[in-house]
Structures are given as structure tokens and as C-alpha cells.
Simulated assay, not measured.
Amino acid sequence: MTFTSSNEDHLLIDAARKGDAAYIKERIAAGADLNITDGRGFTPLIIAAYDGHEEVTRLLLDAGADVNAQDAGGNTALMGVCFKGYPEIALLLIEKGAELNTQNGNGGTALMFATLFGRNQLVKLMLEQGADTTIRDVRGLTALDLAHQQGNEEALVLFEQHQK
């Protein structure tokens, strides 16, 4: 099979989705563009993080993948892990420079995703790392408002403790 750049891009994206660290290492060694995107604007890093592949996420970050890349909807890898619930990967992303307060196309932030989906360990982490609790989404809601709407008592306690 003859590989074109497009084929290689597709294979890199697919390897990130599968958590194929060996292939990712090969592509890094070959100087692949780690910030390529698929049709939805997903980079290999966004996909690897979202799918919970910590080793591949680390490989991509260590090789220079853009930790703050945004997909077509404005979502970042940090938003994805806060949605899915991967605190170890969230901490890794933050340690590598992930912006805590980036807003997607709907004004949502990683803290809002964690709050909305009851990922309270991530709510705690985001608050400890200094996430801005005053940011409002396009509906005018803050992460605290979302905790109230969801009846997320644990998150409400975390927000209250954070304000002290």
C-alpha cells in the first residue's frame, strides 16, 4: 500500500483513538505533524485524551502537541477529559500548560463540563488549580449555576469550600 500524507494523517488519528502507543512513537520519530485535524477538528491529542489513553496523551504532549488546540466546536482536550471523567489525564494536561478557562463555542469551560456531568473529583481539581468560577456560558450560567441545576450537592460543597 502506498501511503499519502492524508493516509498517514488518518492512521495517526486512528492510532490516537485506539491508544496505539507504538504507532504514535513511530510517527513522532518520523517527524509527523502532531496537530493535524480530522473533519471535526479533533487533533490526535484531543482524541487520545478524550478516549482515556494516558500513555498516548503523554507521548503526544512530550513531543510538542498543542495542549490548547480546539476542535471545530471550540472544545479542548481538557474539556473532553472533564466531560469523560479522567482526573489523571486532566492533571497531566494542566501540568503541560492547558488553559483552564478556555471557552468553547457555547461559552462552556472545562469546569462547567466537570460540574455538569458530576465529575466532582475534576471539579475539585479545577478549583484547586484556579479555574475561574465567574465565567458565564451563552445562557448566562456559571459552573455554580450548573451545580445548582443538576442538584449536585457534592459540587456545591466544593464551590462553597473554594469561596472560603
Rank of each mutant, 00 (worst) to 15 (best):
I94N: 05
R17C: 04
G130C: 09
Q129D: 01
Q70G: 00
D33F: 13
D33Q: 13
V56A: 14
L60W: 09
L100Y: 08
N104G: 07
L111S: 09
D33M: 13
L59P: 02
E128F: 00
I28P: 04
G74P: 09
N106E: 12
F42A: 03
L125H: 08
H148D: 10
D20R: 00
L125T: 03
M79R: 09
F3W: 12
G97E: 11
E153Y: 03
S6C: 03
F3H: 11
Q121E: 15
S6I: 10
N75R: 15
L158Y: 05
G41A: 10
E55R: 11
E26G: 02
L144C: 01
L122H: 10
Q149E: 14
V157Y: 11
T115S: 15
T57M: 09
L127S: 03
A21W: 00
L11D: 15
P87N: 06
A114P: 01
A114E: 01
Q161A: 14
K18N: 12
A15T: 08
G64Y: 10
A77G: 05
G19M: 02
I28K: 03
C82W: 00
H53W: 09
Q70A: 14
A131M: 10
L78G: 11
L91G: 07
K18D: 13
A21G: 02
K84P: 00
G19C: 00
I47R: 13
T134S: 11
A32W: 02
D38N: 15
L144S: 02
A114D: 01
D20G: 01
D71I: 14
P44Y: 10
F113E: 10
L11E: 15
I47V: 15
A72D: 04
L59H: 03
I36K: 08
Q149S: 14
D9S: 14
K164S: 13
P87Q: 11
G140I: 02
R17F: 08
G97R: 13
M1I: 06
A114S: 05
N7T: 15
T76S: 13
D145F: 07
Y23M: 09
R27V: 06
S6N: 13
I13G: 01
A49W: 03
L60F: 07
A15Y: 08
T109H: 08
A63H: 11
L125V: 13
K124N: 15
A69F: 04
L125D: 07
G151T: 05
L144G: 04
Q163W: 02
S5N: 15
V67H: 06
D145I: 00
